[in-house]
Design a protein around this nucleic acid. Sequence first.
DNA 1: ACCTGAACACCGTTCAAGT
DNA 2: ACCTGAACACCGTTCAAGT
Lengths: 222, 222
Amino acid sequence: MARKTRTTNTPLDQTRIIQTALQLLDEIGLKELSMNKIANKLQVKTASLYYHIQDKDELMGLLADRISSSMEWPDSSLSWREQLGLWGESFRKVLLSHRDTVDLFNSSIASGYDRLKQVERLYALLSSVGFPDQQVPWVASILKNYVLGFVGEEVRLRLNAEQGAISNAELSERYNQYYSQLPSEEFPTVIRLASYTTNSDWAKEFEFGLNVLTEGLAVKLQ
Amino acid sequence: MARKTRTTNTPLDQTRIIQTALQLLDEIGLKELSMNKIANKLQVKTASLYYHIQDKDELMGLLADRISSSMEWPDSSLSWREQLGLWGESFRKVLLSHRDTVDLFNSSIASGYDRLKQVERLYALLSSVGFPDQQVPWVASILKNYVLGFVGEEVRLRLNAEQGAISNAELSERYNQYYSQLPSEEFPTVIRLASYTTNSDWAKEFEFGLNVLTEGLAVKLQ
DNA sequence: ACCTGAACACCGTTCAAGT
DNA sequence: ACCTGAACACCGTTCAAGT
């Protein structure tokens, strides 16, 4: 048997597990990310992970926390509209910095220190702007969900676009799937707008939506 | 061996599989829903399912489609604000009618006939209201994501509430988890608003958010 | 204190074979 | 045409045992 050339093993710990898991996440995606594969990459038996971590759920939470720790925050001297705009861009950027982050954020419930810190900052911002206490969590939730939802869809559609178009051609196939011979008059608007659903300027669309929210919030603030 | 009392097996087909899967979903939740368990409930071997269905992903898509088929649509004679309000309530109601629907909708990409039909109707509504073609898919996406995000959080928090409170007591534990001795001054706003993050009137909060969106959209329509 | 061997109870999917 | 037996390549998790 060949002796394994193993450069003196650094001892395992949470940080190293998280690091490796994050790297692997970007290589293979969330669906393929398994405890076995993480252990393998660390040149360690799977069971070893469980000495440093409770279970996969906890690890996912730590991953999400680690990712959200790199959020950048807008200068509080700016206007609240500008701050919200920059916050949104920053959050979106963080979510796009790794693969499948939206699913990761949605799956892990327990928020660690870093995610709580994000909440704290957003709450503080909204509170200082003048939203009544009861509405602050509501508004924060709206904003967070907007970004998560948007980026989730952005990533999905970008992937589809790479794999070669969901547009008109495939669209007409899709409803024949269920009802053998559907009149195309069933989906006039979808068909008419098909060209707009595919490629687009994501940054611009993101800004549009965030602006809708901001305008709506401004009304509430009056 | 006891003879199994099996009331003359109805032949398997997609509809029956979907029906059973949906039932099982409500009993055990999406995470526990497996091909094996579905087959079991149908008194059939797991492999049999694959004669009627391509894979689990397809089944999840069919499930989501089936669920969204029970959407009710507002009368088109109403004002657009009223229509959007009713649409939102209807969508939320549909999502709350089964367990883990938000995860289900987020996981299944391919939309079948019924989900496409929902898109068509929403597009048509927005288009008739006066949104320019390019913005119609954007606005539809914002609205859809709002409802999905809201209900997702609603379900998560309701579950936490049942299992006994995430409030102040446990909160202070949570950041000690990462930094051994955190001054509670790190999260003043979160702590101050803790009572508002827990229990609340969900319907009212939902309406609030939808109203923010509507107001923002009204600005865009001018 | 830290890691492993071995086992447990599962997954989703395929495919030749039976009826 | 419809279903199954048997196998494949995986999962996450536990726990007594080794060092």
